[in-house]
Design a protein around this nucleic acid. Structure first.
Lengths: 339, 339
DNA sequence: CGACATTATGACACCGGTGTCAGGTTCGGA
DNA sequence: TCCGAACCTGACACCGGTGTCATAATGTCG
């Protein structure tokens, strides 16, 4: 036998028509039990596998989802945000358990990505991760929707957003962090991150954080805020600049764990002790968080659940079922950096 | 326009035949430049994308690689070995830069995985990562090769292994670790890992390590070895058992960083100071390694290069070019756990 | 001007399945 | 015995491209 076996080969050896082979292998009730058995035997014998291309072409669906990872460009190109990696893992798992394959692809935010995957019938739907370019997302998402592309987005569920999202309750997570610091009376707090609408996740975290402080009669000082994107480097430099400006604080809320880790490095370098002088709270609970020195108190996002919800919601969308935006509950994990 | 546009739609609007459309879009030199321009315009207008299923079916290739991740079953199912995640990232990148898509899938070692992906024409080739079931790999690999399946394996390049491998020079890496400990005179060394042929990577690391010690006239004691698989938990328990048996040592070589991290936890718990009482050296240089307390000295495997080589070699294999097993040089990274 | 190469295009079979339709067999009931 | 339902099977069109072959139009040269 040269090349792969086709259903015609099976038909030949099993002494039936190719149509019957196709039906038998897909467990159609139309086919006689004995015939089916014979077909399966021959198929096994010839090590036959259905050609997915032919099958997909005919049925116009692929049993495949595409995961597009958008990454903020970083200096060190090789490093991938560990939070995304964790999501990638859980999404892969969730896909597998639903019988779907997963195509993974990195995209640059600026590129004209345009959801090639679904248009070209390689995937039935798309999961967008880290699509941070919120300036023009409205237009892009609208055009996707106009093309009837099925996609789900991980990110902040901003009002009037046209797409379907799954996200962590960032606002609630910010509140959790604030509650914690308020309870232990560390009210002089700095914030490292980006509290503008440009990064809605960070914005929501800050809002929840701030509102909780306000509710307790504490006003956060704008001077104690520094901008950072979600990298260790950026967190380090932002924190250094606060220190350089002689801005004092006894606690620090970082918009992500990577930022927090960079912040801790800057603090240590300046001779400021964590947690004695400054309590630090991060966000994400990436794997590294429990190994930092001191271990990092953080707001956990449940990546396993997130992956499942992304996949489930996307599949619902593909099937045409009713779907709503999903908000996942965060959880505060207290470790050595704030006790 | 209902549904996606096909090449017939383009042909209709551009006033040419469907054949010409197909040729024009693939930049065939046979087609007139003006015709091509018109076709491209219409295609853009209609937001046309080539149907990959049809294209793949006809050409019998998919421009897609499959990555199969085999994981040793762990208690905490959700955690994925961070080293593999890093590899996943670099492989994805390498695929993208070669114009290939990547299908990712988790497999259980025991399952009858059988390389469905290539047989079903979903992928042109397969990358195997973490295929630890070395007991019967010969048979499985042989059958894959018999079926003319193109695949590359990340792992130890054992003699007589029938498959194509890319791997880190584990033996050399073990030597590096040994050199380091010998130089700083920490010769009373424990080894945590699996030094049997069942996990050839660990075996090679241990061999290189041991041989270097032997070369310096130092014999490693078998009593100071404990078995562990590559998880933090396993490293923790293995180290605890050494301690519980009152086995003394002033340095410890762990077959992987995860094991090393578990070992450090066990040592600390027993009141043994790292690095003062025991120097610890790991293997892999996962992201966490620089954040542990103390930061972990380790033998780095260059995952970026590894991903590139895996993809490049696999593509060569697919194209029918000559390919040889690849051995990547390790690098010692000295951090606080051993100074 | 005829022979022939060059260029550009269309018609058509083909990849390997799936779904529809028509037809043959068997069997129970009238 | 005849009829219709139930069951099973084969023939065939079809999914949307790609590659081959035939052919028309244009150019070249003796």
């Amino acid at each position: 036998m040269k090349g792969k076996a086709t259903s015609f080969d099976i038909a030949h050896y099993a002494g039936v028509s190719q149509s019957t082979v196709s039906r038998a292998l897909r467990n159609s009730p139309l086919v006689n039990e004995e015939t089916r058995k014979r077909v399966f035997e021959v198929a096994k014998e010839l090590n036959y596998k259905v050609d997915k291309n032919a099958s997909n072409l005919r049925t116009q669906q692929s049993s495949t989802l595409a995961l597009l990872l958008f990454e903020d460009p970083t200096a060190d190109d090789s490093q991938i945000n560990p939070f995304f990696l964790a999501m990638l893992g859980s999404i892969t798992r969730a896909c597998a358990s639903e019988g779907y394959d997963l195509l993974v692809s990195f995209q640059s935010t600026s590129a004209d990505w345009q959801a090639d995957y679904e248009d070209s019938h390689r995937a039935d739907g798309i999961i967008l991760l880290g699509y941070g370019d919120y300036v023009d997302y409205q237009a892009k998402f609208r055009s996707l929707i106009d093309q009837n592309t099925k996609f789900v987005c991980w990110g902040a569920s901003v009002d009037n957003r046209p797409d379907l999202t799954v996200s962590c309750d960032n606002y609630g997570g910010g509140k959790l962090a604030a509650e914690h610091l308020l309870k232990i009376n560390r009210k002089d707090c700095a914030f490292i991150g980006d509290a503008s609408e440009h990064s809605p996740e960070f914005f929501a975290r800050y809002q929840g954080f701030k509102d909780e402080f306000t509710r307790h009669g504490v006003t956060l000082s704008e001077r104690k805020m520094a901008n950072a994107i979600s990298t260790e480097e950026s967190g380090y430099h932002a924190t250094r600049s606060l220190i350089a400006n002689n801005i004092a604080f006894n606690s620090l809320f970082a918009a992500s764990d990577l930022i927090a880790i960079g912040a801790i490095r800057a603090l240590k370098e300046a001779g400021i002790k964590v947690p004695d002088d400054v309590h630090v709270v991060g966000f994400d609970n990436i794997a590294v968080a429990s190994f930092t020195n001191p271990p990092l108190t953080t707001v956990q996002q449940d990546t396993t659940l997130a992956g499942q919800m992304l996949v489930n919601n996307l599949l619902k969308l593909i099937r045409g079922d009713e779907v709503e935006n999903t908000l996942l509950p965060p959880r505060l994990i207290i470790r050595g950096s704030s006790v």
